[in-house]
Nucleic acid binder design. Structure first.
Lengths: 179, 179
DNA sequence: ACCTGAACACCGTTCAAGT
DNA sequence: ACCTGAACACCGTTCAAGT
């Protein structure tokens, strides 16, 4: 039953990585992750050839759940919800996550691996649905595209920016985009 | 004449640091800096207690020259130049520098030491002069302050964002700020 | 097949010895 | 006083030995 061990280890490693990443940023030690996951360092390297690969894998899971959020919002908007409110909400969620979790921001900046890039593209596809509805309602400047929103997300404030300023940033960002 | 050596060494160390920082980002090795400056590692530590201190010192010099740019622009605006154009120009200069020089962005994010913080405040003071003229002309949304501009600068794109997108970011940023 | 953990390599930092 | 560079500490990575 060595196989079951391996699967469980992989799961524990990814969970520990996500957890420690959110708390400490990217300078978590491999030993620390290993200890937290209850395995030896070598096991980390058996599952992921390098620290970067491990972090990428953990972020891919995280990105996946973010994409899910966008998809849900897109469904709502196509069912009649206000697209500008939806966009503002997503931006707020994202900034909140990015502030408490450096990994989110890193994922958005796309220092990312190929699998991550693919995931992100799916995310922008979902966002496109919201933008389409917004344009149909004339809610955005005519020239605004999802690339512009990608730009805003890529430049969203991190935890280096004080909390009070983050909501203000969202307001300015939405102002630059709405008609 | 040991004293003259010391002064020259300090200058060489700071110059080498700036140069290697611009090229390689913050992961330059201390040995590398030492070699480039023509001294032994120990000499680096004699002048700067830690790598962070060394980098801070190099960035303080850089920030100082940025503040000078803002001051010059403020003079021009008070002499009748268009404030919005001046702001756009400063933003463009800043983004260009930040893209080719990671140190600039780090300085703007103010992970900074006290001396750096002081310098930055002087910079914002200069910027205030431009904002005042712009408001007198009704060129900005009434609620815009230098704090908002600080927010934009803090979230300006780095070299991770492709060149084509950077000018677009400037356009969006100015759009969020102008009346 | 998979796991362990001691050993290696690299880089920031220190310090005894030189001038 | 200041400089040198070998030595130390820390952390990512490897690999011989275990099961």
């Amino acid at each position: 039953m060595a196989r079951a061990d391996s699967v469980r280890n992989r799961r524990n490693i990814l969970d520990s990585t996500r957890e420690l990443l959110a708390a400490n940023g990217e300078q978590v030690g491999m030993d620390e992750i290993a200890a937290h996951a209850g395995v030896a360092v070598g096991t980390l390297y058996r599952h992921f050839p390098t620290k970067t690969d491990l972090i990428d894998a953990a972020m891919a899971e995280l990105t996946s759940s973010l994409v899910e959020l966008v998809a849900v919002a897109a469904d709502r908007v196509e069912a009649g919800a206000d697209p500008v409110e939806a966009m503002t909400g997503l931006l707020r969620t994202f900034v909140g996550l990015a502030a408490q979790d450096r990994a989110v921001k890193a994922a958005a900046e796309g220092l990312a691996s190929d699998s991550l890039r693919e995931l992100e593209e799916r995310g922008w596809g979902q966002l496109q649905r919201i933008v389409d509805v917004a344009h149909a309602q004339g809610a955005l400047h005519a020239d605004i595209t999802t690339a512009d929103l990608a730009l805003l997300v890529a430049t969203a404030p991190t935890e280096a920016v004080p909390v009070e300023s983050r909501e203000r940033w969202i307001a300015l960002a939405m102002r630059s985009v709405t008609a």
